[in-house]
């Protein structure tokens, strides 16, 4: 019958000894990466909504992109965010050496810079709200806030996670479990940079293009 007639049944290996050889860390990081990709689908849905609701009909005679975005403020946010990622990269370089102090310093730096990003974004939004540009104003503003804040919410969550990981690194050192979580957090944190590229390009820069 068999498509595998070439395996000789007399000498074939039937059992595999020596315990399971699955790589726990790689399995964990891969699953987490899959989660991030599914999250990217949510972001894509939000971008699709933003595009559809970007039509001037959807501004409901209210402000449209050109009135709402402040690309220069967003650029300072960009600098902070990318620096936060770089700081996390520093932690990863420290981890490679098994250097606990460097890892803690990198995580701490990422925390502070990430919080800085949220501060810049929050100040921008507070100003918009002062001018009556709130999500309830129009379909366009609903889509704008939701998209940008979805990224922001991830950073809030990331800060919480960084704090937890600092505690774990300090208390438990570099166990396999702590390490896979640091690697997952790396994926998470770097991924927010990815998402921000598109938010910055297609919300802030593109929005500013249409100011006449």
């Amino acid at each position: 019958m068999s498509q595998d007639a070439h395996v000789d049944s007399a000498t074939a290996v039937l059992w595999d000894r020596g315990g399971t050889k699955h790589d726990m860390i790689a399995t964990r990081t891969f699953g987490f990466w899959l989660y991030l990709l599914s999250d990217a689908m949510i972001v894509s849905s939000l971008f699709a909504s933003y595009l559809v609701l970007g039509h001037r009909v959807n501004a409901a005679a209210g402000p449209s992109a050109g009135d709402v975005v402040h690309p220069i403020a967003a650029f300072w946010g960009t600098v902070l965010l990318f620096s936060a990622i770089l700081a996390y990269g520093g932690a990863m370089v420290g981890l490679k050496r098994g250097d606990r102090r460097a890892v803690l310093a990198g995580l701490g730096g990422a925390f502070v810079l990430g919080a800085g990003f949220l501060f810049v974004e929050g100040r921008d939004f507070a100003e918009l709200a002062l001018h009556g540009m709130v999500p309830e104003r129009s379909g366009y503003l609903s889509a704008f806030y939701t998209l940008v804040l979805y990224h922001g919410a991830h950073l809030v969550f990331g800060l919480l996670w960084i704090a937890v990981m600092m505690a774990q690194v300090a208390r438990q050192g570099f166990t396999a479990n702590v390490i896979y979580r640091l690697l997952n957090l790396k994926l998470f944190w770097f991924f927010q940079g990815f998402v921000w590229i598109y938010v910055f390009s297609f919300v802030y820069l593109t929005g500013a293009l249409h100011v006449h």
Partner: peptide
């Protein structure tokens, strides 16, 4: 939250 993603008025679709 009172947004207008899918409402018939105020710019929903």
């Amino acid at each position: 939250a009172g947004t207008h993603f899918f409402t018939p008025g105020l710019g929903g679709n």
